[in-house]
């Protein structure tokens, strides 16, 4: 890393409050939420969504892990009743269950289960301007039902279409005021790909530096993909 300023700078895309960073989100919005097993989860922004109280949301995310005291995750947001539908490869842990399972069973929450790699590819297609992709994954199973099939090199492939959303909620380690971001370990997960696939992207970070504070070789998400930043609570 090149030398970094000691103090975060509150300019550029950095918003003063979570409320202001989430302004414009309305009922019925589709929301990409990054995170995998508690890492790289935009907790501050999820809390903010709960406080704003917008409803009928469609969440696209890895899924809900167990609720933990003092933490705020997908389970907690779903428990508020603001979520209409969840698109996820692991909607809930089979043993833990929790609010997602409860609300799904009572018919208050719709679940669409997707394959992790297929979801990644659909988001990538959405972010990279690709209309659709032919993938081998899930051929001859329920994951291919109702979808167009085509053989390539003698192997059946499934047509999957691009996925985009209204907003992406992201979590990075640090950003500069322009919005360039780096992550911490497996906290990277869905973040870079979701950053490309939404009309509005909001990221929470531990620190915000001046431009130049992040080595260009280390940047994972380029500033052009990020609209708003907030500091993690």
């Amino acid at each position: 890393m090149t030398s970094v300023p000691e103090k975060p700078n509150a300019k550029g895309k950095l918003y003063a409050s979570v409320q202001s960073a989430l302004e414009g989100i309305s009922d019925g919005a589709s929301v990409l939420v990054a995170g995998y097993a508690g890492r790289g989860v935009p907790e501050t922004l999820l809390r903010g969504l709960a406080e704003i109280g917008v409803g009928d949301l469609t969440l696209v995310c890895q899924g809900a892990w167990a609720q933990e005291p003092g933490k705020f995750g997908i389970s907690d947001l779903v428990a508020t009743g603001q979520v209409k539908k969840m698109v996820s490869p692991l909607p809930f842990h089979p043993e833990y269950g929790g609010p997602v399972k409860d609300l799904w069973e009572s018919g208050e929450l719709e679940l669409e289960v997707v394959l992790q790699g297929v979801l990644a590819e659909r988001l990538r297609a959405g972010g990279a301007g690709i209309g659709g992709v032919f993938l081998p994954t899930g051929a001859r199973t329920r994951f291919a039902e109702g979808k167009e099939l085509r053989p390539f090199d003698g192997k059946e492939h499934v047509l999957e279409f691009a996925l985009k959303a209204d907003i992406a909620l992201l979590r990075a380690k640090t950003a500069d005021t322009l919005g360039n971001m780096v992550y911490d370990g497996t906290g990277r997960n869905w973040n870079p790909i979701m950053a490309m696939a939404a009309a509005l992207t909001v990221a929470e970070v531990d620190d915000v530096f001046e431009p130049g504070g992040i080595d260009p070789e280390m940047v994972i998400t380029q500033a052009i993909f990020i609209d708003r930043l907030v500091l993690a609570a």
Binding site: P89, P94, L115, P136, T137
Partner: peptide, 14 residues
Amino acid sequence: GLFAPGSAVDMAYG
């Protein structure tokens, strides 16, 4: 009625 494939299916097909 539900399933949690995660990336097990991606691994199996790949």
